[in-house]
Nucleic acid binder design. Sequence first.
DNA 1: ACATAGAATTTCGTATACCAGATACGCAGC
DNA 2: GCTGCGTATCTGGTATACGAAATTCTATGT
Lengths: 252, 252
Amino acid sequence: MPPPELSVQPLDSGATFRNQVYRKLKQAIIQMDIYDHPGDVRLDERQLSGLLGVSRTPIREALTLLEQEGLVRLEPRRGIYVVRKTKTEIIEMIIAWAALESMATRLAAERATAEDINMLWDIFRSFEEQAPSDNIQEYSDANIEFHKAIIRLSRARILETLTDNLFIHMRAIRKLSIRQDNRAEQSMHEHRDIIRALERRDGELAERLAREHTLGLAAHVERHGDFLDWLRLAEVRGTDVKAAFKDGLPLM
Amino acid sequence: MPPPELSVQPLDSGATFRNQVYRKLKQAIIQMDIYDHPGDVRLDERQLSGLLGVSRTPIREALTLLEQEGLVRLEPRRGIYVVRKTKTEIIEMIIAWAALESMATRLAAERATAEDINMLWDIFRSFEEQAPSDNIQEYSDANIEFHKAIIRLSRARILETLTDNLFIHMRAIRKLSIRQDNRAEQSMHEHRDIIRALERRDGELAERLAREHTLGLAAHVERHGDFLDWLRLAEVRGTDVKAAFKDGLPLM
DNA sequence: ACATAGAATTTCGTATACCAGATACGCAGC
DNA sequence: GCTGCGTATCTGGTATACGAAATTCTATGT
């Protein structure tokens, strides 16, 4: 007879102020979408302190974390600014993502159960129906969810962690990801092929398809992502950003 | 005539106490090599405060960073402990490393200059001479330097950053990396083949060789890395670790 | 009006004080 | 000697106070 184990949960749940503030700030920064905002976005420790009802100490520690994640930039005695990645940085991040996800896909081909793959088909179908041009945000989020799902099947936590940190910054190119030349449709086909490769347990192929799929996005950004750096210039010069997009650029 | 630009250096150099403490602690933790130490290693904020001559505030912020990097674990109101990775975690990290480095190698094949590749040959030769069995630490460090050099040739900062964070934890398996079955020699051959592929600008091949080389290490750890988890058990039970290695395990 | 020096203010970095959870210790009871 | 309970102590989390660099405002002289 197995011993009657009473396993009590830790229940702490990292509920320190520091962690709470960290999560709240992170969510707020992501939600605001810096790439939709012209100009600098500056955070004030005291203001946040009053806003969140805690002292500056846990706020500073949370900001320290956010800085390491590349979400904010702390300029000593000058201010705290929400970071906007450059085009080059975004492309590098996509490349790193491609590297990690292709490896994850290889592992997934070995480790995923039949049920796991059914789940992928479910996700695939669920946003196959959805017209991408309608709701960019939802489409983009669903897209990322698909990739996250595959990575999860690798059963390698570190790959999840590392890519999660990268995905945060993919909001920068949301509007780009479904631009003309039927990227959306092509993307879907590639997703389908990846799942099929997983189904056939062809790790080699699945890995290659995943890599090429994501590197394709990198190339797309390389061609059409110049607006990312314009945002920075506009910010410095104080120009109205909206105007800069009048001449045929993707924003909206 | 070029404009007479006067570019003044930032000169701040991140010399805040927080950053200084961060670097010092990181170096100290890495140097001590937790995997050589039996038992828990606990850090005391107040003690560090006295030791380093600064207040607890910058120390706490530095520890926050180290926690995020996975070097220490902060247990609220219980203590701060240097982290020891499990075998599974180490293997996952090697896999992530393989993913990032193989991608970097692919890029390097496109971007590296002839001079860059000569530098790789230099590094290669410099530790070809060195007998690996003599000085494990030096051999291991040189080995990692080689990999860092290749990654640097990708000209993708993010790949450097991400892998640097992974390499920190590779000290865990230093003693393992040159165990019997002439891994050292085989490793050297593989390094040579990677450089040759880069020389021929064969990105596809270089990527595959780099991936297989590093995944080989993962497999090696999978087979012979059980001692990593024993360390944890020994720690919990308070057993003398050295004894556990008597029966033929790699340590030393 | 404009330029400028200097004071007042803002803002982050650091030090210190206080609090509550967790542990260790010791005493009482058996 | 062992168990259980309560208190003292330790430790990290949080709040507050202080300091110095950077910016802004203002008054003054031209």
